[in-house]
Design a protein around this nucleic acid. Structure first.
Lengths: 252, 252
DNA sequence: CGGTAGATTGAGAGTCCTCAAGCTCTGTGG
DNA sequence: CCACAGAGCTTGAGGACTCTCAATCTACCG
């Protein structure tokens, strides 16, 4: 099975040519805002799958916008146990918390090959001052991310294994869908079972067995790195998790 | 044992007389900012323990700053299972996420009697526009809250019962400490074991047994609604959780 | 003095974990 | 062209951790 690659590759030199914004999936910006974003951006960066975008514990001096690919935020305990906090899809802002953190900060890792727009963090306050609307947008993105983490906390804290897996499959599919990744009724699914286990607070083995159970029930199909939701209603019911349509998010 | 009540009671009429700000535990503000905050505020509100500050699922039209007392954010599943997302202490901003949420929003409940400063949410964008520095502060508070939720997700996802309980005792003590609640080496501890269980993703019974185990080990004392950390180092070691000193937060 | 909220304890069951081994697929090098 | 190694997936078995059920106890209140 051959599937065309994601429509967006490397970020263009000018934000006015941004392929991501051209998809119309993000809230519109004024010319002035767009120009400000462009001069705010300092670099364009490509990283391979598995690369560390922000090392754990270490304060980064940069903010990023994920332009293409998947990434994830995580924290580890000292004996190596790892918890994935949330997944990052194109358009997501990376590294904002670090600006305000005093202690241990989460790490961010590229899950697939990624392209990133880089912003110097020192210019965050000037951005608020000179373009309050962009500051407001950044707060919006921060609130949205916390919303995802809230949901994952409910999952890790209160759902059983079957419910957790169903929840995450729904969640990732919907996120992929909003990012325009659906092709032939499925999305590219680069997540390993280890990623899923780390995100859900389950062991790898139990994650595997739970996935099989759901597959046997006919709720989803996971093959050749692609995910189909065969019975979204049933998945929603199992997970007790219903994603609502949402406004177009801002894109910085 | 009688302990003097919290030094701050009901919020004063004028923000210039704010007892919370007078503690010097918050970042300084300019006169202009303070005046803007004061005119932003629409009400003062007192609620009894157990009151619903923001109902789950329902969009509130108001923002709050917790002036005194404890509260918590939570989400429930449809069968009643409840997960506490984080606890709120004096100075915390409440209801920001709702501004940006499209779907299901968490509820907020008063854990003790609380006093609140109320702000109309419609004026949030004007605040960003007219006082970008306050907008920046609000983003800071949002990032700080996400930081707590991140930590709790690691706890629920990857720590065992003993580690979880140790982590939460540390966390709540430190928060109380920063809020100036320490008296005679202990803080007022209004949390029930049900609250702890709901925050940690444990059952009530297992929470009880785990608390007893830690108490038997001499790590803490919990009596008459007060909490002592008898061996903070050991608690940190058990929990693999080390809270760092932090900058003074902004207060809106 | 009964009623209620919260804390405590014991017992048995079940979910989930760890250990261990084998499998599939892909890329590499002889 | 095939052996080999590595990453990821799969499966079984036994045990540990945590849950549910049920009962008791204490403190506080009307």
């Amino acid at each position: 099975m051959t599937i065309a690659p994601s429509p967006v590759g490397c970020p263009p030199v000018a934000c006015t040519d941004c392929h991501l914004r051209a998809t119309q999936r993000f809230a519109p910006v004024s010319e002035g805002e767009l120009a400000y974003i462009e001069q705010f951006r300092s670099e364009i960066l490509a990283m391979p799958a598995g690369a560390t975008i922000i090392p754990e514990y270490k304060l980064s001096t940069r903010l990023f916008t994920l332009y293409s690919g998947w990434a994830f935020r995580y924290k580890s305990l000292s004996d190596g146990r790892r918890q994935i906090l949330n997944f990052l899809a194109p358009g997501d802002l990376i590294g904002l918390q670090e600006e305000f953190a005093d202690g241990v900060t989460p790490g961010v890792e590229a899950l697939t090959e990624v392209n990133l727009c880089v912003f110097p963090r020192d210019n965050l306050w000037p951005l608020f001052r000179e373009y309050p609307s962009l500051g407001y947008d950044i707060t919006w993105l921060a609130a949205r991310e916390e919303h995802w983490v809230d949901d994952h906390l409910v999952t890790a804290g209160r759902r059983n294994a079957e419910e957790r897996v169903a929840m995450l499959l729904m969640h990732l599919y919907r996120r992929g869908e909003r990012a325009g990744m659906v092709q032939e009724g499925s999305i590219d699914f680069p997540f390993t079972q280890q990623h899923i286990a780390d995100a859900l607070g389950l062991s790898l083995v139990h994650t595997n067995k739970t996935l099989r159970r759901l597959r046997t029930l006919g709720l989803h199909r996971l093959e050749n790195g692609r995910l189909w939701l065969l019975d979204p209603k049933a998945l929603e019911r199992v997970a007790d998790y219903y994603e609502r349509p949402q406004r177009r998010l801002p894109l910085i």
